[in-house]
């Protein structure tokens, strides 16, 4: 699926999946439920970073790697470097929001401005040059539409 996806088609697709909003993940054996408040004993579920680069380095790089080349094991993390799937911003924005196939949903962990910032960053770095800026309002509309 290495081709740009139109936003309208994408919205339909995600609406059909009706991906629900995940709450704070409480893994039984994993660290206990986190509060949204920063820095307390239970951790926190909202990233404090505001700019695209910091968000990428603090979140996305965990799987897509600091140089955006992804990784392959039993499954794989797609590279984001030189990625034609990023042509339409709605595709990465929807994935960041809802997750899919191993990609976690970050809609409760990032607000609209953070999603816009990190998507803009990825679309303008790592050999990607999609210069149309993702606006916070558009991300907010996308969130609402789902």
């Amino acid at each position: 699926m290495k081709k740009p996806i139109r936003i309208a088609a994408l919205l339909t697709a995600t609406a059909a999946l009706a991906l629900p909003v995940p709450g704070p993940a409480r893994g039984d054996e994993a660290p206990p439920a986190a509060s949204t408040k920063h820095a307390n004993l239970l951790g926190y579920t909202q990233f404090p970073q505001r700019d695209g680069e910091s968000l990428y380095k603090s979140v996305c790089a965990a799987c897509h790697m600091p140089d955006a080349r992804g990784g392959t094991g039993a499954g794989y993390y797609p590279p984001l470097a030189k990625d034609a799937n990023l042509a339409a911003w709605g595709y990465p924005a929807t994935l960041v929001m809802n997750g899919s196939k191993g990609m976690p949903a970050f809609r409760t962990m990032m607000d609209d401005a953070q999603i816009a910032a990190v998507v803009t960053y990825v679309r303008t770095h790592f050999g990607n040059a999609y210069t149309d800026k993702v606006s916070v309002d558009e991300v907010a509309a996308l969130r609402k539409a789902q």
Binding site: A62, G73, A74, P104
Partner: peptide, 23 residues
Amino acid sequence: VSWHRSPTTMGCAAAWTPELRAK
């Protein structure tokens, strides 16, 4: 060990929510 960088599990464990479970 970073469980999202584990070649076999790509994460720690399933993040079920009541909504996901119901569906």
